[in-house]
Each structure stands twice: as structure tokens, then as C-alpha cells.
Design a protein around this nucleic acid. Sequence first.
DNA 1: GCGATCAGAT
DNA 2: CACATCTGATCGC
Length: 510
Amino acid sequence: MSSFAGRMKEYPNISLDRFDRENIHARAYFLSHCHKDHMKGLKGPLLKRKLQFSRTVRLYCSFVTKELLLSNAKYSFWEDYIVPLELESPTQISLVNEVSGEKEDILVTLLPAGHCPGSVMFLIEGCQGNVLYTGDFRLAVGDVSRMEHLHSGSRVKDLQSVYVDSTFYDPRFYQIPSRDICLNGILDLVGNWISQSPYHVVWFNCKAAYGYEYLFTNLGEEFKTQIHINNLEMFKKMPEIVHYVTTDNKTQIHACRHPKDEEYIQGHRLPCGRTAADGTPLQIISIKPSTMWFGERSKKTNVIIKTGASSYRACFSFHSSYSEIKEFLLYLKPVNIYPNVIPIGKTLTEVTHLLNQICRKQSDPEAFIYKPLGVLKRTRTDQSFVDPDSDEGLFEGVDLAPVRKKTPTQPENGQDKTPVLEQTEITYELVVEDQLLPHNYLDCTESNDEDNGQSHLIFTECEVQQDLPDSQTSSDFDIPCTPESKAPGSEELRELYRRLASGEDVFNQR
DNA sequence: GCGATCAGAT
DNA sequence: CACATCTGATCGC
């Protein structure tokens, strides 16, 4: 839940996603998406009065957000005061003090946030520097490198601050299966059920919020059907959604709701009350989309969990995981990072500390000079190092991001009397500057072959969002290990980067 | 009677 | 498995 107070240090004359208290006096309002916890004060009478007296104050949002907002009668008074903006189209906005006439211009760009229909991030450029307010977002690793407006030529724009969706910024939420993997799990489950007979139906137990629509469109597309929902008025101008939803309950896939829907399902009935025409009882399964997460090294289990005789939980997340947020921030390297959300079970101090470790103001100034190639560093020399789950010092001395360190195997605990075997593998961190490489995470291990005395550097792809069977995971890539090949900018490393940068899949050639 | 806030629910 | 919302109790104006 957003706890962002509404204003950014650099641009205190605008308010974003909060419209109560001091925010009422802002010279412009911004709404990142249409979820209630980002709309506090938006239907307030105070704001209504302010709009009538002001000639310049407006609410800026995406076209889709405008449509969703105005579909709710409580917000229809905004009609004449909303300025919808196109995605990825920088727009100049004048912030006018209506008393003094003093004026400040900012350039605003909406960036798709992947959280729910219409959700955006706001990039603000102006006299106080560039700042990014992310709203809520779900972006995959690598997405940020393809966001044109965060770049200037091939370089990342210099960002003073990022106000980030830190919902899952806690190593506990290290990885969340990708959208595609979750979707495939759901399509499998639904397909296997509804193909059995026309009386086999599925009910999605969705929360009352926007964000499930891409699930409905994918289900509709896959099974050439429509999904039953209570009301589709809000989507009437969105053909890509409205084509796949219906208020006609004679369909096998439902996401309809009723105040007592859980009771209905217990009684083997649908919330919409639909029954088969000939009296044959419907065979209903329920699927509850909810977030599932996995630790850094945990082998992921299924994205579908059976929770009862005819009920399932399916992995589904509106928000980026810890590793996705971290990659996003390490890529942008802002001077400051501020959390918009305190993750459950954490304190503001803890999140702020975690975020400070990866922002520019904490790092070595050397870190931001251009380096053309990666560097290999020996990560660990003995068994006595820090808690592998702690981020304490993780990026110390690292000159280029992103980086992922490997941790050595350790004895279970003090109870375990098994002697620690001397390791013949030395783990390195590989530091890659070229942000546009398709492989942001590479592990590198030096392997000493006892038999023939040869050493190799073995590179492994670490794409955390993949959940493929072993047969489909990428293989290692290795090069001979010599003092020369390990050196920064060596021929061997240069060759590896060249091949990666050209899009070659060096990991799957054997 | 309305709004703000909290506990409890899904 | 922890997101966003709704309902109902309570309090204050």
C-alpha cells in the first residue's frame, strides 16, 4: 500500500497520487493509476472547491486512467479538469502560482508501468533535475534498458531521485515467477478443466481492483471465449479488453463477484447464480490469483497450488520482485532513492537502509566513469564471510552494475560436525558495464581440474525469472583460465561480450 | 448525517 | 504467502 505523502523534494509544487492535506495546494496533480490507495482525497469536497477557483490547476494521467476514473460517478466532477497525456510523449507543463503569477516549467513523460490498465510512471525533467516517480509497477529484468525516455542517446539519463514502488523490496521476495510463466500455468489448469465438458466451469476469485484484465484477455484469446464479469461499462472505449469480457453469464470462465461469493462457491454455485439450463450441476473450480515468492537460491515450485478439492491458488503479481526492483535501480543509478511503500514486516529505516546501499550517493564516485568492459574480481577467499542473505557490503568496491555474487557452500550449522572440504572452485563476480547486453546477470566460476592441471572460467546465465525444467536451462559457457584471460578487457572477455552483444546465444550452443 | 479511522474480512 | 478493497464499528463534528 502506498504511503507516499504526495510530494517530491525536487518539485514540491506538484502532487502525485495523494490529494489530501497540503497536496490540495499543488499547482498540478498527477494520478499514476486508478487504485484507491493512490487516490486519497481525490473525491474530497475541498478539492472540488479548489478546482472551481483555479484557472490553471489540472489532473494529469493516461487516457486509460482518465476513462477508468470517470466511469465512477464519484469522480465525474473531474471531467473538465483532467488532461490526459499520451504515453512516451514529453509534454511541457507550466506550474503557475495564481497569486504572484510566478511560473515554473517542467517536462513530463508518461512511461508504461505494467501494474494495471492505464498505469504509468512519471518522468519529470526541470530546473531541479530529473526525477522518476514510478507509481506502482511490474517490470521484468531488462525492461528498463528498453525505455527510450530514460535514455539520452545510448546513455542513461542522470536521475536525481527515484521514488520507487518498494512493495517487494525485501530479499524475502527475491523472485516472483514471470508473467508468462504464471499465465501458462493458469492456461494449463483452465484448459484441462473446461475441455472436459460444457458443465465444467472456472471461477476466478479476483480482488475488486483493476489489474486482472490481461489475464482475461489471454484466457479469452486462448479459449476463444469471453469471461463473465459484473460490469464492463468502464472498458467500453477499450476494444482490446471489452472484446474478451461479457455480462452474459453463459460462459465457462467467470470472474464475477458477489458480497457472499465465497459462500456461493462453497455451495457449488457461481456468484452470478448461473446454473445449467437442463439442471445438470455445474462442475466448478475456483482459482485465486495471489502473489507467490521465492528466495534467491530456492528452487521454485509450481505456480499453481491446489488448496482444496476444487480450489487453487495461482501465482499472480501486480508488483515487481526484489530482484526486478534492484535491477531497475542499479540500472538507473539515481543519486537518491525513496520508497513509496514500506514492505509488510519492515520499517522505514530498514527499507531506506537497503535502498541507500544501491543508490549513487553511497557509492564510490569512480563507479560512474565509463568502463568499456567487465572486470573479474575474486569474491570470496574463505568460509568466514557474512550472512549470504544480508546485503551488507554486497556492492562495496564494485565499480559497475549489475552484479550478482555467488556464495560458497557452507556447513549447515554448528551441529554439523562434517569437516569443511577445501573448495577447488573459486567464485568471481563479473561486472558488466554494457547495460544493453541481454544477459544482465552472469556468474563466473574458476574451476581447477585436478587431473590435467587446466583451469577454466565458467560463465553461467542467471536469469532469475525463468522456471524451466533442467533440460531447458542454459548450459555453461567456458573459456581457458589464464592470468591474461582473467585480466580486465582481455581478448577472451572482449570476445564473450562481443558475441553476447550481437545477440548470440553462447549459452545454448552445446 | 457525513467523514475519518480502525479492525477484520476476503 | 501479505494486494487492494469492502464492510461495519466507533468517534467527532
